[in-house]
Structures are given as C-alpha cells and as structure tokens.
Design a protein around this nucleic acid. Structure first.
Lengths: 197, 197
DNA sequence: TAGCAAGTTGACCGGCCGGTCCGCTTATTG
DNA sequence: CAATAAGCGGACCGGCCGGTCAACTTGCTA
C-alpha cells in the first residue's frame, strides 16, 4: 500500500523524466545528474529522492520507450499484410529513436529486472512479426527474429554520423536494409543467425 | 629536421600504441590513461611525453587504421570485378573493426587535421569504388558513396550487442545489407541521399 | 668513458561526478 | 489553522581522471 505522491512531487518527477530524456538525447549517457536537475529546475537531491541511482533514472526512461514499442507491436500483429506490418513496426521503432535519440538503450545493458522483462516481451513480439512476414513470403526464408532485432537500430545508428542531416534520413537506410531482408534477389548468407536475442 | 627517437623511447611508443588499442577495444574510449600506461608497463607521464593529450593518442591509432583501409581501397580500385571489389572492401573494413573494435573511430569526430585529411581520402576512395560498382550494374542506381560510407560500420555495430556471439557474425549482416544495395528487387528509396560525407 | 640531453616516473593538482545528509519548506489533513 | 510528514535543496564527501612537474635514470656521442 503505497501512498500517492504529493502533487508537487509528482510534477517534479515528470519534469525530471522529460529533462533527463532531453539531456541524454543531447549529450549521451554521460550527461551529469546535476545538469539534468538544473534543466528540470530542481535541486540535485530531488533527483536521488525519485531515483535511487542514475541507472534507475535511465531505466525509467527506457521502460517507457519499450512499453510504447510493445504496444505498437501487439497492434501490428493483427494487421492484414504481415510484410507491411513488420516494415511499419521498424518504422515506428526508428521514428521513436529519432525523436529522442536512445542509442544508449542498448548500450545500457541489464538495467533492472523490469527492463529485462519488458525487453524480452518486445523481442518476443518481433519474433512473431518476423515469423508472420516470413510465412507470408514478405521476408527471405533465412532471416530470423534475432536478425531483425539486431538490425532494428541500424538506421538510426548510421545516420547519427551525419550531424547536419535531415531528421528523416533514417528512412532511406531502413528502406535499403529492408530490401536486404526481402526474398527477391537474396544471396545465401555466409553465417548462421545468432541464438539470442 | 627532427632527431630520431632514442631506442627505448621508440620501443615505449610502440608498446603504448598496442596497449592503448587493446584497452580501448576492451573498455571503449573511457579507458583511463593510467590503465593504458600500466598495461604498457610504463609510467603515466611517459604517455603524455609521447602524446600531448589523450585525444592525440586516439588520433594516432585511428590514423593507422584509416591508412590501412586506404591502401586496401586503392588496391581494389584496380580489381577486375567492381562489384566483388566493393564487397571485399567492406569485408576488409568490417574485419579490421572486428579485430579490435574501433567503433569509436566514428564517435571521436574531428581529432586532428591529419585524421580529417586521411579520412577524406578514404571517403573519396569509397566513392570511386561505389561509382565503379554502380556503372557495372553491381549496385542499384540510387545508392551513393555516402550511403555506403554510412552503412560501412553497421555490421559491426549490430553484432556488438550480442556479447557471446561468434566473432564472424558481422559477415551475416554485411551480406544482408549488401543484398539491400544490389539492383535486384530494389524498391524506390523514400529519402534522398545525404550530401556529405 | 664522461657528460649531457633525452627520456622516465609517480606524486600531485584541479575539476568533475555520483551519491549522501540534514536543515528547511510546503502540501495535506483533521 | 495547526500539526506533521513528505518533499526539497545544495553544501559536502570520496573517488576518479586528464594533465603537470621536478627529481631521477639512461641511451647516445665525442
């Protein structure tokens, strides 16, 4: 039985999460807690009252993003065209990452049990999306869900090295990579897929 | 007219470069100068005698790698099959990065003028390799050298998130991405290519 | 082999960062 | 409105890191 947060505390928590997301997006995971607190307009102590450690703060942000991806994935499992559904899932994922760059989502490995659990769910959803697409002939026979999970973030990764580029440039590389996943013109792959994720 | 290094100094310089490459590969760019010095078996002051700043040390390593890539690229410009030449260049690049992970090669933006210069040469070589492959029909008409430069490091990037994986897993993703670059089964790209690099 | 410049070393410095703590403020509630 | 606990803030701590320096060692050369 946990008491609800006091009104000002709830407001500060929201401000902190937003400020942290912005700061991490701009400066990467090395952004300092003091800067996040300043950006949110609160004292540094307040950060640690809401999140015991910096990692817990990161975990809270990551959890939100993965949850959103999960929701999109579940929805797209019902879509009529499995190939288009997979492409749209990857589009949603890349778009979300572009909004506020969360490259570090992967960098920060095992954050909390909860993150690990939700991420496993998300991975499972991707596997199902890929299986459906493959059975439908929209994806080559030799790619697996694990392949798509690994390739999922590549479009954002490659565009992050063009500082002045259009924020939509990732769409180009998602299209190229997705063409590589299609059955048409596929060449045999020189290495078996990984067992995880 | 710079005098040659003393024998022990030259040896220490080599030890330092090797130790730094290993340490950066294992711990990323955050590896501390003190650890690098310990690994090389020298005092911390010696590091700064050879490399004025930590960034200069990084630049020295990066320079070596890019030079090697340049040499391979120049050689492959003479190859008979332009498509195979481009694929081999990408294979050499990915293999080199896998040997000692230099993901940070890109992270560390403008290090020194010399790095910028050599990197520009390498970019130029890639452009030429891609142009030849495109004219030969081995690569789709709508991809540019800049596209390939950006995608060049993606295979290593995606496999870096499978800790226990085979060290050759990158070959699988290079193959998938290269299939995406082929003309067969290519779908129109939704976004124009970047002007740089 | 003697003298010296080149090279080495590790203690030390200033600065930053994650995290703690305690006195102060304020929302809540009866 | 008064009492109280929940929340807040920022000085402070220990640790780490890049970089400096002055005393010491050593390879080179005449």
């Amino acid at each position: 039985m946990t008491r609800p947060l006091r009104a000002d505390a709830a407001r500060n928590r929201r401000l902190l999460l937003a400020a942290a997301a912005d700061e991490f997006a701009e400066r990467g995971l090395d952004a300092s807690v003091a800067d996040i607190a300043r950006r949110a307009g609160v004292g540094k102590g307040t950060v640690f009252r809401h999140f015991a450690t910096k990692d817990d703060l990161i975990a809270a942000i990551v959890l939100d993003r993965i949850d959103a991806l999960n929701a999109a994935g579940e929805r797209l499992l019902e879509a009529a065209d499995p190939g288009a559904a997979l492409l749209e899932f990857l589009t949603v994922a890349a778009h979300q990452r572009q909004q506020r760059d969360l490259s570090f989502l992967q960098e920060a490995g095992e954050l909390t049990e909860e993150v690990t659990k939700v991420r496993a769910q998300m991975f499972h959803t991707v596997h199902r999306l890929v299986d459906r697409a493959r059975e439908h002939g929209a994806v080559r026979a030799d790619v697996t869900g694990a392949d798509v999970i690994l390739l999922m973030c590549a479009p954002n990764y490659v565009t992050s090295y063009v500082p002045g580029a259009s924020p939509d440039l990732w769409q180009r590389y998602l299209a190229i990579i997705f063409d590589g996943l299609r059955p048409e013109g596929a060449h045999p792959l020189p290495h078996p897929p990984p067992l995880t994720p």
